[in-house]
Design a protein around this nucleic acid. Structure first.
Lengths: 108, 108
DNA sequence: TCGACCAATAACTCTCTGGTTATTGATCGG
DNA sequence: CCGATCAATAACCAGAGAGTTATTGGTCGA
């Protein structure tokens, strides 16, 4: 029963340095490992490990070219995350006791 | 420089049992600690700890009533998460090399 | 008032993982 | 070819944190 798709996403994006790498790929597109390492604040092997995890989660794609590897973000992989938040807020709005919540808040 | 709001959210929701507790509160509304513990699969202190973390993140609210404490979900706290994903997908769509991505994919 | 109950805290353990350095495998330039 | 460079892997370490049991502080019912 483990690992719905959003579980992997949350786990993967929970680490700040790993998330930062993904963010950079989103903002600036293709990057080599060296380029990413340059501004990651950690060693090259550390970056490689993060990229492997991101790839596992489907969040990045790699393309080998000569001796260097280019990575790029796959934003589509974020959809389970979006779906999950939609579900949660949906459940909440659907419940009758949203009113009750409000009352709770009034007498704090 | 640490802790943008979405950072706390990712870290908090990364743990499956903790996220399950939050999901239950979203689906079914107010719950006492005892009720949550009953189906959490972990001990009562563990549940209390998770609730504390969720509260820290603003994801739940507590209301003391006699000797029991009722917890409820605060879905509004998810908005930094939504904003973040919007940003990421936004960056991606904004980039010129979305085309490049496509080409990359063709010669895999 | 006393015993049972609820939730939070304390104190500890143990696993998981993010980091390191060292090494290997490939590929490029000269 | 040969040295340099890039990225991945191996082997290891240390800190974080999720879990446990034991305990405490309140509050209820009898």
């Amino acid at each position: 029963m483990p690992q719905p798709p959003h579980d992997i996403l949350f786990r993967t994006l929970a680490d700040p340095t790993r998330r930062a790498i993904f963010e950079r790929l989103c903002r600036e597109g293709n990057q080599t490992v060296a380029a990413l390492t340059a501004r990651a604040g950690v060693s090259q092997p550390a970056v490689s490990k993060h990229l492997r995890v991101l790839k596992q989660a489907g969040l990045v794609r790699d393309r080998h070219q000569g001796r260097q590897t280019h990575y790029s973000a796959q934003v589509d992989a974020l959809s389970p995350l979006i779906d999950w938040t939609k579900q949660m807020t949906g459940f909440w709005h659907g419940r009758l006791d949203a009113l009750e919540e409000l009352l709770d808040r009034m007498d704090q």
